[in-house]
């Protein structure tokens, strides 16, 4: 006759310890896996939503702002009469301060060859005011646009510009693709 196995206190304690160990190891492994694959997110400006309100210059906790103008050269027309560089009604199409739109002269105009001019941004001078962006968008191809520079941004997850952005252009984007540069990034269907 087969002897019936009894489940005594010792067995219960041993089983419990084994189960706790399995749960602990599994939990730690799961947490490690979760942390290892967790996607980080950062703030970025959708250039197609931006309405050039100027708040990126005034509301950023960094001074000067971590928002800078960037230039999608492949969209630029390299025009002599650049809407982002010259004030409306510029006296002359030259680099005279009185003709420049940028309040900090951060946009640099370089002659390439007749009739092409290249426009480059001096990021140390740029305050992210979007004045050139509005000029370029209104009169040109919209190649100048704003982006949050993540080497300057605190990435504190409490973007003070996003709170007041009237067009809700500042969005969370995956940290591994932190920029929305025109040309490679195109208007989304919900934009």
């Amino acid at each position: 006759m087969k002897k019936k196995k009894t489940f005594n206190r010792r067995d219960f304690i041993q089983s419990s310890i084994r189960a706790s160990l399995v749960v602990s190891v599994g939990g730690i492994g799961g947490l490690a896996l979760k942390n290892g694959t967790k996607k980080d997110w950062v703030w970025q400006i959708d250039p197609f939503e931006c309405n050039q309100c100027g708040r990126c210059a005034t509301e950023c906790v960094r001074n000067p702002s971590a928002v800078k103008c960037v230039h999608a050269y492949d969209l630029c027309g390299y025009c002599d009469l650049c809407g982002g560089y010259f004030i409306p009604g510029a006296v002359k199409l030259d680099t005279g301060a009185e003709n420049q739109l940028c309040p900090t002269a951060a946009l640099i105009r370089k002659f390439i060859e007749e009739p092409y001019f290249e426009y480059e941004i001096d990021e140390d001078l740029c305050i992210g005011c979007a004045k050139c962006v509005k000029g370029c968008t209104s009169f040109g191809n919209g190649s100048l646009h704003l982006q949050i520079r993540h080497d300057l941004c605190r990435n504190c997850n409490e973007c003070s510009i996003a709170r007041v952005c009237p067009s809700k252009a500042i969005k969370r984007v995956p940290a591994d693709t932190p920029y929305l540069i025109k040309g490679t990034f195109t208007r989304t269907t919900d934009s």
Binding site: Q52, C53, G54, R55, A57, T58, E59, P88, G89, L101, P103, C129, A130, K131, K134, G135, S138, R163, V164, C165, P166, K168
Partner: peptide, 19 residues
Amino acid sequence: STRPDRMSGNPYELDIDGI
């Protein structure tokens, strides 16, 4: 308040209304 629907004036406004 500086919430989005209470915009203060943009000190960097580019006025193209004339054009």
